[in-house]
């Protein structure tokens, strides 16, 4: 294996092939992080909604989770990118295709974010539901209202319990961001393919891309283990797995 080609000037746009790799990493991280903001926020709200006994909170959240969990990510990505601009009012559709900057990027972020939100919602729900019901009853008996029980008991406990599964959801988003290449986002996997096309160094560049994914994954795992150790709930070790 010879990685010397990475420092050669790239075919187009100035820069070297190494710059293409970095640009790929940048877009992979941007897609993943932006999608995670959506997935985490929306997923948390939906997850909490599903734990309530109020039907008009519970039902829409359940419907959302079932809908977004049961359609493949690739199909959802195509729908955001190819279908949505055609079925919204014409002016908006035209803006989405021509006026909006980076339509492929935002389509990927929305698709990945809304898809993963359904999975995050399930993790949050099961985290909250793993807290023994007696604790809620005890809290209610001390005179707290239900919203207060969520704020002071269920949410703080629930989030500490679901850190490990949420870490693995983040890593899933990170890996799934490669699906964005199908709608033209030049993230890491797409850049690896493009570079292999221009340099014919397929082995080297695919190896490099794989190593980058593995290294970032390991870094996230180590960081989250540190966090987990600090906020761990005594007596709940391992329950989140």
């Amino acid at each position: 294996m010879d990685f010397g080609f990475l420092t050669q000037p790239a075919f187009s746009g100035g820069g070297t092939y190494l710059d293409w790799v970095f640009s790929g990493i940048k877009w992979t991280l941007l897609v993943s992080l932006c999608a995670w903001v959506i997935a985490f926020t929306l997923g948390s709200v939906l997850g909490v909604m599903r734990t309530t006994r109020v039907w008009w909170l519970n039902l829409p959240a359940t419907a959302y989770v079932e809908l977004f969990r049961n359609i493949p990510l690739l199909v959802q990505m195509f729908i955001w990118y190819f279908v949505v601009p055609e079925i919204v009012p014409k002016a908006l559709g035209t803006w989405m295709k021509q006026g909006m900057p980076m339509p492929e990027f935002w389509s990927a972020v929305l698709a990945l974010g809304f898809y993963t939100a359904s999975r995050v919602a399930e993790q949050v729900r099961s985290g909250i539901q793993s807290i023994p019901r007696g604790q809620t009853h005890a809290a209610l008996a001390t005179g707290l209202t239900m919203p207060q029980v969520y704020r002071h008991l269920l949410l703080p406990m629930g989030y500490r319990i679901v850190i490990p599964p949420l870490t693995s959801e983040f890593l899933t988003i990170f890996k799934n961001s490669s699906v964005a290449l199908t709608i033209g986002v030049l993230e890491l996997t797409a850049q690896a393919r493009t570079i292999s096309e221009y340099t014919f160094r397929t082995f080297e560049i695919f190896t490099l891309a794989t190593v980058v994914y593995v290294v970032i994954t390991m870094a996230v795992v180590v960081l989250m283990q540190l966090l987990e150790r600090r906020v761990r709930v005594p007596g709940y070790i391992g329950t989140g797995k």
Partner: peptide
């Protein structure tokens, strides 16, 4: 992706 036309246009 992967065509000579891509290269010609980019050049």
């Amino acid at each position: 992706q992967g065509t000579t036309n891509e290269r010609a246009m980019k050049a």
